[in-house]
């Protein structure tokens, strides 16, 4: 089988974690299928990133072009499609990230090849690719079979394929030439926008009480706020609470919000979507309180209570206070 081509992801001169996970995923698959892995690095002045990658994978192919300074899918698509034509990989792997969302379906459409997104498992049986992915917010899994093709494209979920601990031997860096058409003005990068810092930095707190859509009315925010402060924690949340503007954006935990590493994380009425869980990186204790026993959060929590959070909170607060006074 031909090679597996991994698209490295980077922004602001730093490789994204997903890149190492893509490489790990590619390595496992390559072993299965008996083929090699190459990493495609597209960008401008990316020599240093290429060396970082070469220290971990055998084969790094660089497309260095002024027009690739910022990730804009139109130019990336042009470059990648040419690179694919040159190398004829059997599989192209990208992250299911803001970049992957923008680029992967465009490349798949232009090449008319099968695409499976947000994969948590990938296997080759002969030349046939099957992917495992989740549906219905993680409550159901599905196997997705691709029609036989010379080439497949898949995007993987962050965290689903842990990065290899020990990098392989030093590899080689090669460059590929592509031509990118004159700027047609159809799509242009203007600027990055940072999230405004608020008064509380949730990433600095040891105790986080996070709330989700289980809170159905704004007035109930006062109840959780009070609970959080009674145990010395700060209030954070899942995305729907931000969407309703009940808390400022800097309190959002997850892939498009903050990454937190508290000693204690108490999730109240949060289902546990992968985008939310991506923001909790800790060896700390995770507690989930949810009235749905099948909520995916229970698969990552250390302790769980299956109940209405509004019945639990006042009692839990009292119990904790009693214990504190007892000591």
């Amino acid at each position: 089988m031909n090679e597996i081509l991994v698209l490295a992801e980077h922004r602001g001169g730093t490789l994204g974690d997903i890149t190492w996970e893509l490489i790990a995923c590619g390595n496992t698959l390559a072993e299965q299928a008996g083929c090699s892995v190459a990493v495609a690095l597209l960008g401008r002045d990316v020599g240093q990133l290429a060396e970082q990658l070469a220290a971990a994978v055998g084969d790094v192919v660089v497309v260095d072009n002024d027009r690739l300074e910022h990730f804009v899918s139109d130019t990336y698509q042009q470059a990648l499609v040419q690179l694919i034509a040159q190398r004829a990989p059997a599989l192209i792997l990208m992250g299911h990230t803001a970049c992957g969302l923008e680029l992967a379906p465009a490349v798949a459409t232009s090449l008319a090849i099968p695409l499976v997104t947000d994969c948590i498992g990938l296997t080759f049986e002969g030349d046939a690719l099957t992917a495992t992915r989740q549906l219905y917010g993680g409550k159901v899994s599905a196997d997705v079979l691709c029609k036989p093709s010379d080439r497949y494209l898949a995007t993987i979920r962050g965290g689903a394929f842990p990065a290899d601990e020990s990098p392989a031997a030093a590899g080689t860096i090669s460059t590929a030439e592509v031509t990118i058409e004159e700027d047609d003005g159809l799509k242009r990068f203007i600027e990055y926008l940072e999230c405004e810092a608020g008064e509380v930095d949730i990433t600095q707190s040891d105790v986080i009480v996070a709330v989700g859509r289980g809170i159905k009315e704004q007035k109930d925010m006062a109840i959780v706020e009070e609970f959080a402060s009674s145990i010395g924690g700060v209030l954070a949340c899942s995305r729907p609470i931000i969407d309703k503007k009940w808390l400022p954006k800097d309190r959002q935990v997850g892939s498009s919000g903050k990454t937190v590493r508290p000693k204690l994380y108490i999730a109240l009425g949060i289902s546990g979507s992968f985008q939310h869980l991506a923001g909790i990186k800790s060896g700390g204790t995770i507690v989930a309180i949810n009235k749905d026993p099948n909520a995916p959060f229970f698969t990552v929590a250390d302790y769980g209570i299956v109940a209405d959070l509004f019945k639990v909170l006042p009692v839990l607060k009292t119990k904790i206070e009693e214990l504190k006074q007892g000591s």
Binding site: A112, P114, V140, S141, V144, L145, C146, D302, Y303, G304
Partner: peptide
């Protein structure tokens, strides 16, 4: 170009210790 061949309820080990009983 793709088709779902199987759907199943994931059998992940419930990591959480579920604290049962009354509230």
């Amino acid at each position: 170009l793709t088709s779902v061949t199987r759907m199943f309820i994931p059998t992940v080990e419930q990591k959480a210790e579920i604290l049962t009983g009354s509230v």
